[in-house]
């Protein structure tokens, strides 16, 4: 009886497990192997560190990593601050908060690729909407996507627009679990709105913030769809990000082995973030 239950358990798991191994664990191992044994699209007989040596010497990669970290360092905090503000507004007794909630959340359900086409129009140099607006105040216009010092920030703006409403949802959920007696007590003490936020709301949102933070960081390394429409990583890699660079190496330059070494780098970054997350979840449990 016991052993038949064991067999049943494995039978139930088998289909999911096979696919999980085939498309997650096996490719991870093969990526690592290829980063040592691969050369171009071929496999070599013996292991070498050539792909990793190239990694260290690759100036474009340095640029790409710098971009990726800057991209994360700006989009994540800005999205989170906006998300908290949005959640507070939508959760307040403000007139029309239902409309606001829809407005904030809508970008989340729209495909990045489709809306990037609309943003492309806002950013385009001659007829673009943003430059027309600048023209109204007598400014000559900015090359939003063509200027190397601006392109990455233009991408960030769109990312923040896309992500903030998504994170708002988590804060909204957290706000609804805060005991309203705390606010009544604060009202009796005549505490200012800012004090209430600083002393009650924000500390109680801390577990959510940590959760959102790690997910936002993971997303910042995974979300590259808009690059395909807006800049293709250009000009001159000024807006290139790690996952897009991997795609380029694998499918445009056909250097599968180097793409594998880059993937190992990306996986290492994600593993570090995940370890932080496990630490965070641990803390979250203690917190409650």
């Amino acid at each position: 009886m016991r052993s038949s239950r064991q067999i049943h358990a494995w039978l139930l798991l088998l289909p999911a497990l096979c696919l999980l191994v085939a498309f997650t664990h096996y490719p991870v191992i093969k990526t690592i192997a290829r980063s040592f044994f691969g050369f171009g699209t071929r496999w070599e007989g013996k292991a070498s560190l050539d792909n990793y040596r190239f990694l260290l010497e690759d100036d474009v990669l340095m640029q790409v990593l710098f971009n990726s970290f800057l991209y994360a360092a700006i989009t994540v905090p800005v999205s989170i601050i906006l998300a908290i503000a949005m959640a507070l507004w939508v959760n307040s007794k403000m007139v029309g908060r239902g409309i606001l909630r829809t407005a904030y959340f809508t970008p989340t359900v729209l495909p990045m690729i489709s809306v990037a086409n609309i943003w492309l129009f806002f950013y385009s140099p001659e007829i673009g909407l943003l430059n027309k607006l600048l023209g109204l105040v007598g400014h000559g216009g900015i090359n939003w996507l063509g200027d190397p010092s601006v392109a990455l920030y233009s991408l960030m703006a769109m990312t923040i627009w896309k992500e903030a409403g998504f994170f708002m949802i988590f804060y909204l959920a957290a706000l609804q679990t805060i005991d309203s007696n705390l606010y009544h007590a604060a009202a009796i003490e005549n505490a200012s709105k800012w004090t209430v936020f600083k002393r009650i709301t924000f500390p109680l949102l801390m577990p959510t913030t940590l959760f959102v933070l790690v997910n936002a960081l993971l997303n910042a390394f995974k979300l590259v769809d808009h690059l395909f429409i807006l800049t293709k990583g250009g000009p001159n890699n000024a807006s290139n990000l790690l996952l897009y660079y991997i795609f380029e190496n694998a499918f445009s330059f056909f250097d599968t082995a180097y793409a594998a070494a880059l993937t190992v780098l990306l996986l290492s970054i994600l593993v570090v973030l995940a370890l932080v997350q496990f630490g965070v979840i641990e803390k979250r449990v203690h917190y409650r």
């Binding site: 999980l20 096996y26 490719p27 694998a250």
Partner: peptide
């Protein structure tokens, strides 16, 4: 092993999954 996939989503492994 299952939870690992929460972090390593298939998009990241496009190269090997394409080969498969």
């Amino acid at each position: 092993l299952v939870l690992m996939q929460l972090m390593v989503v298939p998009e990241i492994l496009i190269v090997e999954n394409y080969q498969t």
